[in-house]
């Protein structure tokens, strides 16, 4: 639990820094930071329970995608503003490094394994965002229809 809190705080600061670099509007920074940190925590927890970084990335990306769409509604802002800093923590930078290291060691088995995992993680981020985009779109239609029937 303590470790999770540390991870949350570190991810918080990492997202904060990227928000400043990408110049997120000042009053949206708190929301961005929390979205990014929650995305990372989701990744860590899912990774721990299911022992699969790919599914972890998928879950993290789903969290970021969903929360960003909600924030975009609430703040009347482009969803990109929340997604871009939020997703950065999930990009598998360490695995890119490990793939390269394995390649240098002429350990082609590891290279293939970690490399494929890296690609799958990037794919999982993509699919997480895609799924959430579609789900939010559907929810919006359902919500509008529901309101139309009621009124």
């Amino acid at each position: 639990m303590m470790q999770l809190l540390t991870q949350f705080i570190l991810a918080l600061f990492a997202t904060l820094s990227f928000s400043v670099i990408f110049r997120v509007p000042l009053n949206k920074i708190p929301a961005c930071v929390i979205i990014g940190a929650l995305g990372w925590v989701t990744y860590v927890v899912t990774f721990d329970y299911l022992d699969s970084p790919v599914i972890g990335c998928f879950a993290g990306a789903c969290t970021v995608g969903l929360l960003s769409s909600i924030s975009a509604r609430v703040f009347k802002e482009a969803a990109t503003v929340f997604v871009i800093p939020g997703i950065l923590c999930l990009v598998p930078g360490f695995r890119i490094y490990r793939t390269m290291e394995a390649l240098l060691l002429h350990n082609y088995e590891d290279t293939a394994e970690i490399g494929v995992e890296t690609l799958l993680m990037a794919g999982a981020i993509a699919i997480g965002l895609l799924v959430m985009g579609v789900v939010v779109g559907l929810l919006r239609i359902v919500y509008r229809k529901g309101r139309g029937i009621l009124t």
């Binding site: 990492a14 990227f18 990109t80 871009i84 990009v91 930078g93 965002l129 985009g133």
Partner: peptide, 19 residues
């Protein structure tokens, strides 16, 4: 340090474009 240069923006935008 590598994380500073990872293509997070390109990945995100490419997905949104596909979407």
């Amino acid at each position: 340090c590598l994380m500073l240069f990872v293509p997070g923006v390109a990945i995100t935008n490419s997905i949104r474009d596909f979407l």
